[in-house]
Amino acid sequence: MGTFADVPGGGFIMGADPVYAEEGPPTKVFVSPFRLQVHEVTNRQFSTFVAETGYITEAERNGGSALFVKSRTPENFMSWWRLDPLATWKTPGGEGSDLTGRDNHPVVHLSLNDARAYASWAGGRLPTEVEWEYAASLGLFDPDDPRSGMRRPDGTARANIWTGFFPIQDTGSDGFEGLAPVGCFEPGLTGLYDMIGNVWEWTESPFGPDVPRITIKGGSYLCSDTYCRRYRVAARDSMEPDFSSSHVGFRILKDPALAD
């Protein structure tokens, strides 16, 4: 079911160096040890799950998923996305697309329930926001530089983000336009790949009190210097638990007692 890295227990400052209001205030938190999948769940791994269980995702049952598209009216935020009735995990680009050449891409177009179903089948669970951010923080090459998970001191890429002026042009100067296969960039100090960029990742944590949305972490290939800047471990966003999109995936956690 994939390779896992041991994340030792310890304390850290959650929400360090906040940029947006929802990221703070910085808080000291203690975390128990766990094991985290070294990369996001891939299309190949999810295909095995579906083949063995016959699982049908919510996007397949409920009329599609959100697909990011290049817009002729980029000044209109809503024009960047469309609810595509044919966008699913196995047709990630909508009509006419398939998984050819994408076996090692992170699986997308999955709701929280879809991610939970896979995690249960694989003998694990989704991480909480605290666990996810703790693991990502331990992996930073420079704890004093929140952007060190995204780029090296010389400016070269450590993560797949949007390079260029968002949403007009992604130059692909980091090596990729759109999604990248998992593990294309160097791992963090904990051996975990793609904790920053590529796809947002589901957690099990509500976004806030009385907010009917779930926290997602890590940023995605749509994060850029000219737009969201959520390519930092403290960054957070949210999504409805029954919704899915082309830039959100997940990885799973195993508690020590359940680890292989």
Rank of each mutant, 00 (worst) to 15 (best):
M1F: 12
D17H: 12
D17P: 03
D17T: 13
P18M: 07
Y20Q: 04
Y20G: 02
E23I: 14
T27L: 15
K28P: 14
K28C: 14
S32Q: 15
Q37H: 08
T42P: 00
T42D: 00
R44W: 06
R44Y: 00
Q45K: 10
G54K: 14
E58K: 12
E60Y: 15
N62Y: 15
G63Q: 13
A66T: 10
A66H: 05
L67D: 06
E75R: 06
N76M: 07
S79W: 02
R82L: 13
R82P: 02
L86S: 13
L86I: 09
K90V: 02
P92L: 00
S97C: 01
T100V: 03
T100H: 10
G101K: 12
N104Y: 11
H105W: 12
P106G: 07
P106R: 12
L112M: 04
L112H: 02
N113V: 11
A115Q: 02
Y118W: 11
Y118P: 04
G124Y: 14
R125F: 13
L126A: 05
V130H: 12
E131S: 09
Y134R: 13
A135C: 10
A135H: 08
G139H: 00
L140F: 03
D145F: 07
P146A: 08
P146T: 05
R147S: 05
G149C: 08
G149V: 00
M150K: 02
T156G: 07
A157Q: 03
A157W: 06
R158M: 06
I161Q: 08
G164F: 14
P167Y: 02
T171M: 14
G172Q: 05
S173G: 11
F176G: 00
A180N: 06
A180K: 11
P187T: 11
L189Y: 10
L189R: 15
T190G: 01
L192E: 01
N198P: 11
E201G: 04
W202L: 10
E204N: 12
P206E: 04
R213G: 01
T215M: 04
K217A: 02
G218P: 00
G218L: 03
S220M: 10
Y221A: 05
Y221S: 09
R229D: 00
A234R: 05
A235T: 00
R236P: 04
D237N: 12
S238A: 12
M239I: 11
E240C: 09
P241Q: 09
D242W: 14
F250I: 01
R251I: 01
I252S: 02
I252M: 05
L253H: 01
A259E: 13
A259L: 09
D260N: 14
